[in-house]
Design a protein around this nucleic acid. Structure first.
Lengths: 206, 206
DNA sequence: GCCATCTTGGACCGACCGGTCAAAGATGAA
DNA sequence: TTCATCTTTGACCGGTCGGTCCAAGATGGC
C-alpha cells in the first residue's frame, strides 16, 4: 500500500497550519508525533523530511503563528495612527476575536509556550522570548506618537503585552468572553490615563 | 537492601512540598513519576500509598499551593482595611516577592496549570478553575470597601487576577523583575483611577 | 524503456511513561 | 517469641514516546 511519491504529495504550508493548531491546543510536551501525524495526514517519513524533528517543527509552528497573528496585530496597531489608545484597543480586539473564534484553539501559542518555557529546548524558549520581544516593540512603536516620556512608554508596552498574556491564560481556564473584554477595557483605560497624565502640558500650554 | 518500615518513614507534608515544586517547575505533563520520586526521595510504592496516582497527587499539590499562597494573599489583602488600592498593592507584592525568590520556581503553579488546562484530567482542570475563582473572590472582597458600583468592582477583581496571571507567565519567559513590578504598578494605578472615578461624589459632597 | 532520485508509509528501535506487585524488613500486640 | 500488619524497594508490565530506517512506488531526464 505504498501508494505514493516521486514529488511532494502534500501542501507543506497546510500541514504546518495543522501541526501549529495541535501544538497550540495541547502544548509542546503533550503533543506526540502520532498526534501531529494524524492531524496533518502525514507519516513520520514525510514529517521528518519536510520539517526535521519535533523541536524544529515546533519552531516553525511558532514562527508561523507569529507571522499570521503578528501581521494582524501590526495591522490593528497601525490602523489608528496618532491615536495610541485606539491602536491598543484594536490590538486587544484582534486577540479577543481570535479567542472567541471557535474554529481555532483558545489561548495563544506563544503564551502557552512561555508558560512552559523551562521544559522547552533552549533554542525554542529563546525563540519564544524573541517573539514576545517583537510584540512588545510593536506595541511600543504604536505608542511612540505620544508626548509621554520614554520610560513611561516602555512600561506601557510591557503592560499591554502582559495583559495580552493574561487574556490567553484566562481564556484557557474557561473565563467567559465578557470578562476578558472588560479586562482589556480596563487595560485600555490605563493606557489612556497614563498617557494623558504624563503629558497634560500639550493641552494646557499649546 | 529493603532497609525499612513498619510505620511511615517520611514526612508526608514535606514530600508534598517537594512534589509541588516539581509540578510547579515543570508542569503536569512534563513531570514524571521518576522525577517526583527522586525529588521526594520516595519509591513508587510510598508515593502511591500516601497520595494515590499522579492525578491525585497533582490535585493535592494544587490544594497545598493554594493553601500556602492563598493564605499569604489573604493576609496581604486584609492588611489594609478600607484602602483597596494599598490592599491590591500588597497582593501584587506577595506575588512579586515569590517570583523574585530564587529558592522557589518562578511563575505560578495555578497559572501554569490554567495554561495547560485542556491537557489535564477534567477533575484537575475543574479544580484549577475553582482556585482561580477563589482568588477572584478574595480580591473582590478586599475591594468591597469602595463606593463604586458592584459591576465595576467585579470587573476590577477579574482584572487584578488577570494581571497576576500575566506576571507568572512573563516571569517564566525571563522578563526582569523591574518590568514585572512596573506592570503591577500600572495595574494598581488602574484600580486607583477606576475607584476614584466611579465614586468622586464621596469626596465632593461629603 | 531505463534508471537515478525522491517521497511515502509503516515497521522497528531503545528509552521512558504511569502503574502494579511481590519479596523483604520493621513494627507492636498478644 | 510469634505473627498479623504495615511500609518500602525495585523489578516488572503493557503502552507510548521521539527517532531511524528501508522497501515500495512514483517521477522525470535520458
Amino acid at each position: 500500500m505504498h501508494t505514493v511519491s516521486g514529488r511532494k504529495q502534500f501542501d507543506i504550508s497546510a500541514a504546518l497550519d495543522q501541526a501549529m493548531q495541535v501544538f497550540w491546543q495541547r502544548g509542546y510536551a503533550d503533543t506526540s508525533l502520532d498526534a501531529l501525524g494524524s492531524a496533518t495526514g502525514l507519516g513520520r517519513g514525510s514529517l521528518y523530511g519536510a520539517f526535521g524533528n519535533k523541536d524544529a517543527l515546533f519552531g516553525q509552528c511558532l514562527d508561523r503563528y507569529a507571522s499570521i497573528y503578528g501581521a494582524q496585530h501590526e495591522q490593528a496597531l497601525a490602523a489608528h495612527p496618532g491615536d495610541p489608545v485606539r491602536a491598543v484597543e484594536a490590538f486587544f480586539g484582534v486577540v479577543l476575536d481570535r479567542i472567541a473564534d471557535p474554529s481555532v484553539p483558545s489561548g495563544c501559542l506563544i503564551a502557552q509556550s512561555a508558560a512552559q518555557s523551562s521544559t522547552l529546548k533552549d533554542e525554542n524558549s529563546a525563540q519564544v522570548r524573541g517573539l514576545l520581544d517583537v510584540q512588545r516593540q510593536r506595541v511600543r512603536t504604536a505608542l511612540a506618537d505620544s508626548s509621554a516620556d520614554t520610560r513611561t512608554l516602555d512600561e506601557l508596552a510591557v503592560f499591554v503585552v502582559a495583559v495580552n498574556q493574561s487574556l490567553a491564560v484566562l481564556s484557557r481556564a474557561g473565563t467567559p468572553d465578557t470578562e476578558l473584554r472588560s479586562v482589556a477595557r480596563l487595560a485600555c483605560a490605563t493606557v489612556a490615563d497614563t498617557l494623558t497624565r504624563a503629558a497634560p502640558e500639550d493641552l494646557t500650554r499649546g
